[in-house]
Amino acid sequence: MGEVIVVTSGKGGVGKTTTTANVGTGLAKLDKKVVLIDTDIGLRNLDVVMGLENRIVYNLVDVVEGNCKIKQALIKDKRYNTLYLLPSAQTRDKSAVTPEQMQSLCEALRGEFDYIIIDCPAGIEQGFKNAIAGADRALVVTTPEVSAVRDADRIIGLLEANEMKKIDLIVNRLRVDLVKRGEMMSSADVEEILAVNLIGIVPDDENIVVSTNQGEPLVGTDTKAGTAYMNICNRIIGEDVPFMDLTAKKGFFSRLFGKKN
């Protein structure tokens, strides 16, 4: 039976969709059968981040309304044949789907897939309630900023109140140079404030911009973010992976003061 994971954050723009794309692709790289569901109705984005925007025929709302079979709406990934996307609808709104419908959709997909990963919209309204309804565990994404951490705390409270079985934290877009200077909260600071298990630290990496431009998740590539996302995937499947040393090699200092090494 597959596991349903919701990727959520409260605040917008902290990297939920990027995280969903990379974690999903990474799990497929680990030979898992994965389906990604975009639940941000009206603001569809996971399709472009995955580079699958030209292949959409049916969407999430078509599935829950019974206009098509689930299988007809699933888009197979370009690179991994065990990875699928169920895109969101662009011309409808959040009220087109109910938490009960999401629950039964997740149940239907459980038998077919190892992981069902749900990209949650920002906010705490209907869209959030839909996204978490069928989930077994949550990945809460935040950046080390006061606004994002405050919203993550609120989200964690709501997840706990809804009896989410497992809640893990991803600190995204960490600027190691700023943390060193004391001008940014460290991942340990964020972990202490939010008091949930830290499952990954993703450094701020310009390669993410490039990969999003191209519609190709960078998980598993020889980049800092690519390695960080792959580590998260390995931790999700239960491996004990040590946190990477973000200060090592290709550091900010060597880049700033010329390429000495």
Partner: peptide, 19 residues
Amino acid sequence: KSSGDVAKNRLKLVLSSDK
């Protein structure tokens, strides 16, 4: 005081008063 610590302290305060 570094702004990272300022952020952490402000957050602790705001979260407890939120609740």
